[in-house]
Design a protein around this nucleic acid. Structure first.
Lengths: 213, 213
DNA sequence: ACCTTTTTGTGATTTTTTTCACATTTTTTA
DNA sequence: TAAAAAATGTGAAAAAAATCACAAAAAGGT
């Protein structure tokens, strides 16, 4: 299943949370299309791909749809995540409030700089060389890399060798991993550059994020 | 020109910076392909699209290529950028070291919380209602939104009405703008969700073409 | 000078993704 | 009860993106 489809499913789900909060019980493909910036046919096609179906005239039930999407997206259970590198980006990720309600829990940070260590916080910051043990002990499968580009590939390798399967990488370098590892490279400079290119030419509109392929 | 092409150009440029630093003078399409994770044909096609050409056996000259790419990407002059919302993400953006060498300069932050104000820092944090004036006075064209989702659309409108043309949005909501505005929505939760989906399915080895293909 | 090797540049082809369009189902209205 | 209206679900078609494959150019060797 393509990454773009999965991104859209997540977006539908996010839009549905908002609709739910606003009191909506039913939703139509064109409401979702509008919220996410795609066509109604795309929404229905995406759903059809995962066997999600609605009612021929009543659309979809919000609560049901949210539940199905969360199931597909693996968000029916809490996912524990570690952060490596506790500079500005790493710290921002550790403190990002948006994760909690998504069943994502940042459980620890790791850094090479002893000045950063603090085992007593709610989210402890630990020594980098404790990372392997921590990952194994807690069965962590997902990690965030927020170290300088020069260190990123090495950190990746430690993480993978410890058992981590999925990585969100903020270092401005395209990390490569083994077959069974999922790496999502997010390059913030690139996202801005992109905007700068488009405002300088005259092609305007909403750019949608698909950082990697 | 498609967004994906532009992203790749940026990636080539970033890879070239590294190659340059390592002392390379010439580069071939397959070096770049390898660094960025695409095929050599893709690299050449992308270049051909923008009239960039190399030498039939000598590949491309790194310095020349960097210059051409920077020209295309509008990075031949410094781009001033403001940040609205100085929470964790906004602060991280204000302090992100990666921008400087990309000719991107964060010039000011804005917040609604008076406790955040500090006009004397190198990058001042100012009152939100000073934003419009600041943008007009300094001719700012690009801004970053790092406020809670609930406030994002409103902040967007103020920014656009002040003259900002390009926006990088971190609020977890798909912002919509006018025709002549470029909006790049980056949703961090989404990027993680994505990873979670793929490590869960890859492990099970399930989910594959039954409906399609 | 000629042959071999390497690498570009790009038309043709294939693959992937999106959109179209409409039969089908359900709801509402009269 | 029948007709009209509103949505879905999905093959077929179109569009977009990526890859192939190969002629042509440049460099190096003998």
């Amino acid at each position: 299943m393509s990454k773009r489809t999965i991104i859209r499913l997540s977006k539908y789900k996010n839009a549905l949370y908002r609709l739910k909060k606003m009191g909506f019980v039913k939703v139509f493909s064109d409401n979702l299309a509008d919220a996410v910036g795609v066509t109604p046919a795309q929404v229905r096609k995406d759903f059809s791909m995962f066997g999600i179906s609605g009612n021929k005239r009543g659309g979809y039930t919000v609560a049901e749809l949210v539940e199905k999407l969360n199931k597909i997206l693996g968000k029916d259970k809490v996912q524990d995540v570690i952060v490596v590198g506790t500079g500005h980006i790493g710290t921002a990720m550790m403190n990002y409030r948006g994760f909690e309600k998504e069943n994502i829990r940042i459980v620890a940070g790791f850094d090479i700089d002893p000045a950063k260590y603090n085992a007593d916080e709610k989210i402890p910051v630990l020594q980098l060389d404790k990372m392997r043990g921590y990952v194994k002990e807690h069965g962590i499968r997902v990690g965030i890399i927020a170290v300088p580009d020069i260190a990123a590939q090495q950190v990746l390798e430690i993480m993978v060798s410890a058992g981590i399967k999925g990585i969100l990488n903020f270092a401005p370098i395209n990390l490569k991993g083994e077959e069974d590892t999922v790496i999502n490279n997010v390059n913030l400079g690139l996202e801005l550059e992109n905007i700068i290119y488009f405002i300088n030419t005259d092609k305007k509109g909403v750019i949608n994020e698909d950082t990697d392929a």
